[in-house]
Amino acid sequence: MKPARILIIAGSDSGGGAGIQADLKTVTMLGGFGMTAITAITAQNTLGVQAVHPIPTDMVLAQIGSCISDIGVDAVKIGMIGSADTAIAVAERLAALDNVPIVFDPVMVATSGSLLADDATIAAFERLMAIATVVTPNIPELAALGGDSIAVRFGTHVLAKGGHGEGPMLTDRLLGPDGLLKAWSNSRIDTPHSHGTGCTLASAIATGLGQQLDLVPSIERARQYVREALALAPGFGSGHGPMGAPLGFHAHA
């Protein structure tokens, strides 16, 4: 059986901990085949984002078109989008896909605190939420997008991540248009090396959906993968370092 084809639309992280680099690693580890449309190039390390170079919208669309027209696509993961124009154009292009699941991680701020989306881009996120199968905001992102009501407003599912909450336990909530569908609580893994958690989780969910798993099993496998990756963090850099790679994870997931 051929691997699921996962199209990743996101920014590049030169430090390898998040973005396209984390996405490709995750898709590969979970048995998928990753393709990319790069929206921005960042100069980035564990201490933060030193520079950002957005890719022009027409080039982002060209990358998407090249992948879809020849190789095909079983699921899409959207991360850092680069600009409001790109967000709108990508939403229009993906809306034309037939029955392809879309995971949208509304990246606004990096783990280090660096801003990765301006106000116009955040406003344009509404177009992407309207076509997404599931949106995966953390607590600050959820608040900026309008809170729990976004599942109802956009007719989508929202995995509200609890990692930015206080205390020794964290809870992730899956919301649908009709309210809370499921919640998962785990003890917090105490590590500063959590760079790329959001990218990794969203890519893992997209891989599951591309492999024709239902949404809840895709989320559960993705959460397990992220927790193992956090526990295996190699400790690189002097800031928020990258996670590890759970070798062979897909063999027992």
Results as ranks from 00 to 15, higher is better:
residue 232 L to S: 08
residue 175 L to T: 02
residue 121 T to W: 01
residue 94 L to Q: 09
residue 202 A to C: 07
residue 192 P to W: 12
residue 41 I to F: 13
residue 55 I to D: 11
residue 185 S to K: 05
residue 168 P to C: 05
residue 34 G to L: 02
residue 236 F to G: 01
residue 207 T to R: 05
residue 103 V to I: 13
residue 224 Q to D: 15
residue 84 A to E: 00
residue 208 G to S: 03
residue 240 H to G: 02
residue 218 S to F: 08
residue 199 C to Y: 01
residue 10 A to D: 07
residue 112 S to F: 06
residue 253 A to T: 01
residue 70 D to L: 10
residue 180 L to C: 13
residue 60 V to A: 12
residue 120 A to C: 07
residue 77 K to H: 13
residue 91 A to G: 09
residue 234 P to F: 09
residue 214 D to F: 03
residue 207 T to C: 15
residue 138 N to T: 03
residue 253 A to Y: 00
residue 214 D to A: 15
residue 99 N to V: 03
residue 144 A to F: 00
residue 251 A to K: 14
residue 172 D to P: 05
residue 85 D to T: 02
residue 89 A to R: 08
residue 83 S to T: 14
residue 89 A to N: 07
residue 95 A to R: 15
residue 84 A to S: 12
residue 74 D to F: 06
residue 205 I to L: 08
residue 168 P to A: 15
residue 133 T to A: 11
residue 67 C to V: 15
residue 130 A to L: 10
residue 223 R to A: 13
residue 157 H to C: 07
residue 40 A to Y: 00
residue 209 L to Q: 02
residue 145 L to Q: 05
residue 44 Q to E: 10
residue 206 A to V: 05
residue 121 T to I: 01
residue 41 I to Y: 11
residue 210 G to P: 03
residue 39 T to H: 09
residue 59 M to V: 14
residue 216 V to W: 03
residue 85 D to E: 15
residue 180 L to P: 08
residue 223 R to V: 15
residue 233 A to P: 03
residue 110 A to W: 03
residue 202 A to T: 02
residue 80 M to Q: 08
residue 4 A to R: 02
residue 164 H to Y: 08
residue 144 A to L: 13
residue 167 G to M: 12
residue 17 G to S: 07
residue 41 I to V: 15
residue 104 F to T: 00
residue 45 N to V: 00
residue 231 A to P: 00
residue 214 D to L: 14
residue 150 I to A: 09
residue 98 D to W: 00
residue 126 E to V: 03
residue 212 Q to I: 02
residue 193 H to P: 10
residue 197 T to N: 11
residue 172 D to F: 02
residue 132 A to V: 10
